[in-house]
Nucleic acid binder design. Structure first.
Lengths: 125, 125
DNA sequence: GCCTCCGGTTACGTTGAAGTACCTGGTTAC
DNA sequence: GTAACCAGGTACTTCAACGTAACCGGAGGC
C-alpha cells in the first residue's frame, strides 16, 4: 500500500519513468539468458549507439537492476548481468516485448484505417 | 514468428515506441474499470496537462487501443474506453505499473547507495 | 450580463534524451 | 609499424516531447 503512480508526488513515478526509458526494455530483455559484454549488447540491440547504451547501463546499475563486472583484463573484459531485482523486472518487461511483437498487425491495420480517413470517422452516439 | 524488437527495421519497434510513450501506461491503467470522460482522466492521472492528454488519446485512438465516443451533448460529453486490443495491452501494462509501485524501496535504496559513493564502488572480479 | 461547465485548441518556449562524429589506451597479432 | 580488439569518453547538435498560458463555443443558471 501507499504507492500509487497516479499521484504526482509518488516516488513510483520516478521508477516508472526509469523503466519506461527508451532502451531499458531492450537491455533487460537482451540480458534474460545471462550476462553479456558491452559489444555483445551493442550487437544484440540493433540501433543503439555506444553512448546511449553506456548511459542506460549506468542508470540501471545505479538503480540496482544490473551489475557491472570488470575482469580487469586487456583488452577490456566487462560483463553486464541482471540482479535479482532486474530479473524480477524482466517478467513484466518481457510481457511488454511479447505484446509488441504479437500485435504488430492489429496496430498497423488500425493505423492505416485511421490514416486513410482524411476526416477521421470517430464514433458518435 | 518474424517480429523481433531487437531488429532495427522491425515494425514492432514502432509499436514498442508508442506503448512506451510517457503517458500511455497511465491512460491504459486509468481506463481499466471502464470508460471515462476527459476531465475524469485529467483528474485521475495527476500531472497530465490537457494538451498532452489529448495528444496521447489521439495516438492511442489511431492505434486502435481506445475508442472515443461523442454523445454530442451540450456541455460536451465524450467518453474514452479501451478496445479489446487496449484491454489486452492492459495486462502487461498493469504488471509494469504494479512492479513500479511495489519496488520503490529497493530502487530508492539502490540509488542512495550509488549516490553515496562519490567514487562508485563497482564490482571487480 | 456574466459566469460555469466540458472538451478541447493554439501559439509559444523549454529541455532532456538521443544521435553524430571522433578520440583514447594498452595489448596482442600480423 | 600498424592494425585490430574492447570498452568506453567527449564535444557538439538536433529534435520531439513536454510544459505554460491563454483562448474558444454554446447551453444553462444566478
Amino acid at each position: 500500500m501507499g504507492y500509487n503512480v497516479m499521484s504526482v508526488t509518488c516516488p513510483s513515478r520516478l521508477v516508472l519513468h526509469r523503466i519506461g526509458a527508451r532502451w531499458t526494455v531492450f537491455v533487460v530483455n537482451a540480458l534474460e539468458d545471462g550476462p553479456l559484454r558491452f559489444t555483445a549488447l551493442v550487437a544484440r540491440i540493433q540501433g543503439v549507439t555506444p553512448k546511449v547504451l553506456t548511459e542506460t547501463l549506468r542508470s540501471m546499475e545505479e538503480d540496482g537492476l544490473l551489475t557491472r563486472v570488470d575482469y580487469g583484463e586487456q583488452p577490456p573484459h566487462v560483463e553486464y548481468g541482471l540482479t535479482d531485482l532486474g530479473r524480477s523486472l524482466l517478467v513484466p518487461l518481457r510481457a511488454v516485448r511479447e505484446w509488441a511483437e504479437s500485435h504488430v498487425p492489429e496496430i498497423l491495420e488500425a493505423r492505416e484505417r485511421a490514416g486513410a480517413d482524411p476526416q477521421p470517422t470517430r464514433q458518435r452516439a
